[in-house]
Amino acid sequence: MKSGSPAVEAENLVKTYAGDIQAVKGISFAVEAGEAFGLLGPNGAGKTTTIGMLNSTVSPTSGRARLGGRDVARDPIGTRAISSVVFQDSVVDRPLTGRQNLELHLKLWGVRPAEGRARLAELTETVGIADLIDRPVATYSGGERRRMEIVRALLSDPEVVFLDEPTVGLDTRIRHDLFDVIATLRDRTGVTIIMTTHYLDEAERLCDRIAVIDAGTIVACDSPSNFLASIGIEVLEVRADDTQLVVDVLRSHGIAPPDILVIGGTVTASLRTTDGARVLQLLAEASIHVRSATTRSPSLDDVYLRLTGDRITVSSPN
């Protein structure tokens, strides 16, 4: 990596597909070496397209992407040499064994054979697939295949690894196992990680910073702790027959519109200056029928919904 350069740099990236479909509308961020950076957003937000522009499989309509100080468009092979990708879907030769798949990666990335063999042995042992790498990948479970792909991505000792929804489609236990593996490997290798995910707990667990993408633009970028702090001290969820009445009460007691979210029959409010018990008392005094109410600590789900969901924009009582 060129000294002083961020490991990954996106500068006003724009991607417009045929039919004037704007997938990415000017995304900029910089990721330092060793940092884990999450791209969080709903389906179709532009996360995978952004990753594609960084790994040279999508050509930007405008803007610039750099990896280790190298321009991705001008030096695609050089930037591919210092990075690797774990794709959303499994991308392996299923008839081949795990070892054959891994050795193919070593050869294509130009890793010296002895070093490659040693690293392959260590990484497969670390993630618990050493016993099955001589079996055809077609016989692996989804979780085993994912582990193999994570090992493959790290075999060439890359500076940057792109994880494009690495745990999508896996059951909860395997997902947690896999994230342990990723977190462990990250601690040990110090690799820079760019990850897209739908799972907020994963982003919170792994990422130093998170960019929330919505409709092709970054709507917020901060550390998970700062995001959580921005939500307040407590979150109240109220299910009521008339959500508008609940919103009116919340607004009249100083809760700002951005802190109120209505999804179906549930009103979620981030509480900063009051607590849940006080709000419930106010609702009771207003004779509003509440079907259920819960309070909990803020989570990244709340941040995510606040930034990408149907934020309430009710007009003032006047």
Binding site: A81, R119, E125
Partner: peptide, 29 residues
Amino acid sequence: MTITATPPTAVSVQPRPTRSRQVSAIPTL
């Protein structure tokens, strides 16, 4: 799952793909 404590081996990757490297990819493929 087994988590080992030793740091993984650092590997040397040729920094820039040369023409010969491109040619050597063909037999692999």
